[in-house]
């Protein structure tokens, strides 16, 4: 018995010794698949392992502030004053969209048209039936079923909720004053599903349900999505092209601290509920070698990762934005006054 114990301790001693120290990052769940894809290909090419774990945007912000990871990731950009207070710098990596999904028998994907204000009313619980006049007004000729509307929202905090509620707050004044925008709000009505998966499951199981999920989930599950009215007044369907149009028509150059929400962008082809996801790093790097590795990785992602991102239904940033950001790195991330890494 004692011998087994000693042998066990010895095994641990061996297990504890050397293995390569990779760079680590943590944060938003939304970009986790694409970072994993990039990291896999990057390791195959360069041998450097970048370990990213999805613990939530809030977790990412907490951990980078606690300096337990080399970089944090968040779907919710930090405001410039918050960045200054903690000495952080943020930059976006990829773009994605939030899609309203429904369970309406006999309705094709994209057939139902909604506006931001109407969506807000539905989630406020003011519109309770699918064949209500407010919905019929936007959907002439569509056979709307006489079903009660069951709202499904997220029970857990999430960047997806942040984007969705920010959009509703923007387009529906009552939502803005009554509920507000955050990754976790006091929903006026409806059920809470855990994760995009939970919302999808509830929507699928309940006829007449409406919820909101990330684009990848809507696409992979072949959900019935709604077409949304964008700022230009056109009804668009959620596609990679629509997200790209939103990203392209956004005022990147005029956003101090890279604080930008891609909601309700002016392009005629833009999907109104689009958002970018951000990386957080310290301006002053205590470990310049690790900082350089992180920047090299994301430079690789910008230069060579577009196809991989698109294969997973993410939208890369416009080329001019990438160029702008790479120039920013040399000025923003330094160690002892010198830039940690100069991107090409």
């Amino acid at each position: 018995m004692l011998k087994m114990f000693v042998a066990g301790v010895g095994a641990f001693a061996i297990a504890s010794t050397a293995a390569a120290a990779d760079i680590s990052g943590a944060g938003a769940t939304f970009p986790a698949p694409v970072y994993a894809k990039w990291a896999e290909a990057y390791k195959a090419q360069t041998g450097v392992g970048l370990n990213y774990q999805a613990i939530g945007s809030g977790g990412g912000i907490k951990q980078i502030k606690a300096k337990t990871v080399d970089f944090g990731a968040s779907d919710k950009p930090l405001k410039p004053d918050e960045l200054a207070a903690s000495g952080l710098y943020q930059f976006p990596t990829v773009v994605g969209g939030v899609v309203p999904v429904m369970n309406l028998p006999g309705i094709a994907p994209g057939q139902i048209k909604l506006s931001g204000a109407l969506l807000g009313d539905i989630f406020l619980g003011k519109v309770t039936k699918w064949n209500a006049p407010e919905i019929a007004a936007l959907n002439k000729g569509v056979p709307l079923p006489n079903l009660p509307i069951t709202v499904v929202h997220r029970s857990d905090g999430s960047g997806t909720s942040f984007l969705f509620t920010s959009y509703l707050a923007m387009k529906n004044a009552e939502w803005g004053s009554k509920v507000g925008a955050s990754d976790s709000v006091q929903w006026p009505t409806g059920l809470g599903g855990k994760g995009n998966d939970g919302v999808s499951a509830f929507v699928k199981q309940t006829a007449g349900a409406i919820g909101y999920v990330e684009y990848a989930y809507a696409k992979q599950n072949h959900s019935t999505f709604a077409s949304m009215q964008n700022k230009a007044g056109k009804f668009v369907q959620p596609t990679a092209a629509a997200f790209g149009a939103a990203a392209a028509s956004a005022p990147w150059l005029k956003s101090p601290g890279n604080y930008i929400l891609l909601l309700d962008q002016p392009s005629a082809a833009a999907w109104p509920i689009t958002g970018a996801t951000f990386i957080l790093m310290y301006r002053n790097q205590e470990n310049p070698a690790n900082g350089a590795q992180v920047l090299k990785f994301f430079e690789w992602g910008y230069n060579k990762g577009d196809a991989l991102a698109a294969s997973l239904d993410y939208v890369p940033l416009p080329a001019n934005v990438k160029g702008l950001l790479k120039k920013q790195w040399a000025k923003s991330i330094t160690a002892g006054g010198k830039p940690v890494y100069v991107a090409k």
């Binding site: 641990f12 504890s16 293995a19 990779d22 680590s24 698949p33 370990n51 774990q53 998966d197 599950n221």
Partner: peptide, 29 residues
């Protein structure tokens, strides 16, 4: 935390079946 790559060094982040299951089960793929 979890680790995408193989690691048997206890002083580094380490993968585990439950955390991997959690991440994968709730994904879209």
């Amino acid at each position: 935390l979890g680790n995408q790559f193989y690691n048997h060094n206890l002083s580094q982040p380490m993968a585990s079946l439950p955390t991997t299951i959690f991440q994968f089960a709730l994904s879209a793929y």
